[in-house]
Design a protein around this nucleic acid. Structure first.
Length: 477
RNA sequence: GGGGCAGUAGGGUAGCCUGGUCCAUCCUAGAGCGUUUGGGACGCUUUGACGGCAGUUCAAAUCUGCCCUGCCCCA
């Protein structure tokens, strides 16, 4: 009778579901009065913090974190022609200091190549300075003209992790591209977000790059979301910014570079792939609250139940969990819904019955209920959460597999992209790409696919019949 | 980039065409009191709004213009 009470829109109405869950689960407040800029609620920011702690941990193995300025002088920004072409329509310019017009306008970084590389030019003298591998996590600004969307298409990206590496040779730079892909795949495994790696077609590569390899996930509505990119810059920027080094023979050489980035789209992916009709489902590693303890207060035993809950909370915190007793004056059921909306992986109920039996009841976010002996409760929880993590990994992997269809011709492709991703043979020509994109109303995502969900092969191009290779076609965000 | 629709309290809505009688209403909104608590409790009291700026007018949520913001469709 009350099933409608407080319900989210169903997840199969993904667009409405996404908009609502952002505020209902306290991730972002979209009411900030500037288009394309949104406010992180503390809870959403907690998810971001945990995800980015993982990202930092992965990056820090082989990179150093740094911080470059937000403002870039126009004179530096305008040096690399292809790069400019790719970004100039999206740049915010600072033109005044107070009431004084600036001699040189300053760009709010849309990405930081042109801020970083002039400094790299000063820093790099010798082959012994290489390789150089730095990254920063910063906000960037892009004057998006398309429909903005929280976490996905922003005018201020608040969480842009960008890495910039410099190498002595093209081969080393190419190897770094592969290393970066491995790091990013590991990051998304930790977030339990399945990804497909592919090489972007030439017209869709990063402006100023030789080639771009990207990570995409598939959203519940079947559109792909690009959640990581790795760019081989070759020597384009080093020639522009004079990044040279003296090699072992005493000769000046241009360096080779890569850059790669991940943004808060990673958070959008976690929310979107794992969530369900009841709200968020968070992997334990990114949940700001890993375990919520709900005291079941009946009759006169309230104090006893509360102190049992607190003792459990202390024990779980001691074991390294972020546990929280919810002692608000609400019915237990209301609390269950509250924490389910926020995706807390595990709920523990403690009531008089449990105290008497020396047990606790543990319920995962996906509804698996276990009665645990109060002694050894930490070990029991450890194994439940590990299993929960595997369970949601398997579920999203299966959901992604179900959205991938191998299509042999244009008709099948058009049908497949209505609900997911099509894998087709494509010859690589732009003419055929344009034909395919026009007929099926979707985009060529990439070829040289790397995904254990997708077998790749050669075959006749679905547009021209010539030699083709496996290629992803999908609607995109 | 083009087109359409919309913005009323924390959230959801009515009112707008036909300016005034408007003290609007509902809620998983807030505050307070009491009774409650093993899957969304209940009663009573109470708080709070017409996106912004300008204009028309005796009078604007309502009409006009510009701006801001959001949603949908098309390219």
């Amino acid at each position: 009778m009350d099933e409608e009470t407080g319900a989210l829109p169903r997840k199969d109405d993904f667009s409405r579901w996404y908009n609502e869950i952002l505020w209902r689960a306290e991730i972002m407040d979209v009411r900030y009065p500037v288009k394309g800029l949104y406010v992180w609620y503390p809870y959403g920011f907690g998810i971001r913090q945990r995800a980015y702690t993982i990202l930092r941990e992965i990056m820090d193995r082989d990179h150093a974190e740094t911080m470059f300025p937000l403002l870039i002088p126009k004179t530096e920004f305008m040096k690399e022609a292809e790069h400019i072409k790719g970004f100039e329509d999206e740049v915010y310019w600072v033109t005044h200091g107070g009431r004084t017009e600036l001699d040189v306008p300053l760009a709010l970084r849309p990405t930081s190549e042109t801020a970083i590389y002039p400094m790299y030019s000063l820093w790099i003298r010798s082959h012994t300075d290489l390789p150089l591998k730095l990254y920063q996590i910063v906000n960037t600004f892009r004057y998006e003209t398309k429909h903005t969307r929280p976490l996905i298409r922003l005018r201020e990206i608040t969480s842009f992790k960008e890495a910039h590496t410099v190498h002595a040779t093209r081969e080393e730079a190419a190897e770094q591209v592969e290393t970066a892909l491995r790091l990013y795949c590991e990051f998304y495994e930790r977030l339990r977000v399945p990804v497909i790696v592919s090489r972007r077609p030439a017209w869709d590569k990063f402006p100023g790059a030789d080639y771009t390899i990207a990570l995409d996930t598939i959203m519940p509505d079947g559109k792909t979301l690009q959640i990581g990119t790795v760019h081989m810059l070759g020597d384009h920027f080093s020639r522009t910014y004079e990044i040279t080094y003296e090699d072992v023979n005493g000769e000046q050489q241009y360096a080779y570079q890569t850059c790669y980035g991940i943004s808060e789209r990673s958070i959008a992916a976690v929310i979107s792939v794992h969530g369900d009709d009841k709200g968020l489902v968070l992997p334990p590693e990114v949940a700001p609250i890993g375990i919520v303890i709900v005291p079941i207060i009946v009759g006169k035993r309230g104090d006893e139940v509360i102190s049992a809950a607190r003792a459990l909370e202390a024990e779980l915190r001691g074991a390294g969990y972020t546990a929280k007793v919810d002692d608000r004056d609400m019915r237990p059921g209301a609390k269950y819904y509250h924490w389910e909306m926020r995706g807390v992986p595990l709920r523990i109920e403690v009531g008089p019955r449990d105290i008497d039996a020396n047990t606790v009841v543990a319920v995962t976010r996906t509804g698996r209920r276990t009665t645990l002996d109060r002694r050894g409760v930490v070990e029991g929880i450890h194994s439940i959460l590990a299993q929960f993590g595997e369970e949601i990994s398997d579920a999203v992997r299966q959901a992604m597999a179900d959205r991938i269809t191998v299509a042999a011709n244009l008709e099948e492709t058009a049908e497949a992209v209505k609900t997911g991703v099509a894998v087709v043979h494509w010859c690589g020509s732009q003419e055929c790409a344009e034909k395919i994109e026009a007929v099926v109303d979707a985009s060529i995502i990439g070829s040289e696919i790397r995904s254990d969900l997708i077998p790749v092969s050669n075959g006749p191009c679905i547009a021209c019949g010539g030699n083709g290779t496996s290629t992803l076609v999908a609607r995109t965000y």
